[in-house]
Amino acid sequence: MSAEPERNNLPFEPKSKPKKANKKASGQKEQPVKQAVVKQSEKKENRKAPYKKEEMAIPKVVSDRMVKRVAAFSGIPTFLGIASLVVSYLLSAYAHIKLPPIAVLLVNMGLFGLGVLGITYGVLSASWDTEHPGTLFGFSEFSTNWGRMVEGWRATRQKKV
């Protein structure tokens, strides 16, 4: 039994990782520059992309789901940020209520900041499974997708080291 939990591959996730080409042994002679250039160009022609474009693309169902969530989780706070500026102006101009400028600034920055965070949450809270639409607020999908993202970062960092 392994310590790692088993996870299902997503429909748009490649089934296997591409294999790396073997490097030459350090004891072999170097080829002349012309031959090396010709062989490199031949390798480029013969080499296929590790994944097909369709394998790497996010399915339309999933991307539509992400766009809807980003519009809701980012659009609402952004709209409220703009509305807070209009309301503070109307209160100042017509109701003669003077709000402290720092309060207006902090409320506005807070709402626009929530809008920026809403973009990330909208993408990560969407279900990345084409068959399963997910929940309304997407708390469980967020934790699953966040874990996948962190796992990818760690795998990338380990490859570089």
Rank of each mutant, 00 (worst) to 15 (best):
N108T: 15
S16P: 02
A36L: 08
P59Q: 05
V107L: 10
N8Y: 06
L91D: 14
E6S: 12
P50M: 06
Y121M: 09
I97P: 00
L90P: 08
H132E: 15
K98W: 04
R7L: 14
P18K: 09
N108G: 13
V86A: 13
G27A: 14
K15G: 09
A126H: 04
I58F: 01
T144Y: 03
I82D: 03
P59G: 01
A72F: 15
R148L: 03
P14D: 09
E42H: 04
T144R: 09
N22Q: 13
A126G: 05
K39F: 01
T130L: 01
K60E: 15
R65Y: 04
K43R: 12
G134K: 03
R148N: 06
S143R: 07
L99K: 01
L10M: 07
K68S: 12
K60W: 02
M1H: 06
H96L: 02
W146S: 06
F142K: 02
S125K: 03
Q31G: 04
Q28M: 10
G118V: 00
F142N: 00
K29D: 15
F79E: 06
K19G: 13
V61R: 01
L124M: 13
A36D: 08
L99M: 11
S125T: 06
V104D: 00
S2N: 08
I82M: 06
G118H: 05
H132K: 14
F12V: 03
P50V: 04
L106P: 00
L85G: 13
L106Q: 06
K24A: 13
V150H: 05
V61I: 11
A71C: 15
V150E: 11
S140M: 06
R157H: 13
K53E: 14
R7P: 04
K17P: 03
E131C: 02
N9V: 12
S41C: 05
S26V: 08
K159N: 14
D64M: 04
K52M: 05
T78S: 11
L114T: 10
K160T: 14
S74E: 00
E6Q: 10
F139R: 04
V87C: 03
Y94G: 08
T120E: 04
R154D: 14
F73R: 04
K34L: 13
N9K: 12
S143I: 14
V107K: 01
R69A: 10
T130G: 01
F112N: 07
E13I: 07
P101A: 02
M56P: 07
V70N: 09
A93R: 09
K160L: 15
V37G: 00
R47I: 00
G27S: 15
M56I: 09
L99S: 07
Y89Q: 11
Y121E: 10
F112C: 04
E131F: 02
E13W: 01
E131V: 06
W153K: 04
F137Q: 01
N145M: 10
A155S: 11
S125Q: 01
T156G: 14
P32F: 09
W128F: 11
V37M: 07
G113C: 09
V104M: 02
L124S: 05
G75T: 08
E4L: 08
E54T: 06
L106R: 06
K159D: 15
K44D: 01
K53R: 10
A95K: 07
N145K: 03
F112Y: 12
I76F: 14
L114N: 03
P14F: 08
P5M: 08
N108I: 03
S74I: 03
H132W: 09
Q158S: 14
K68R: 10
K39Q: 10
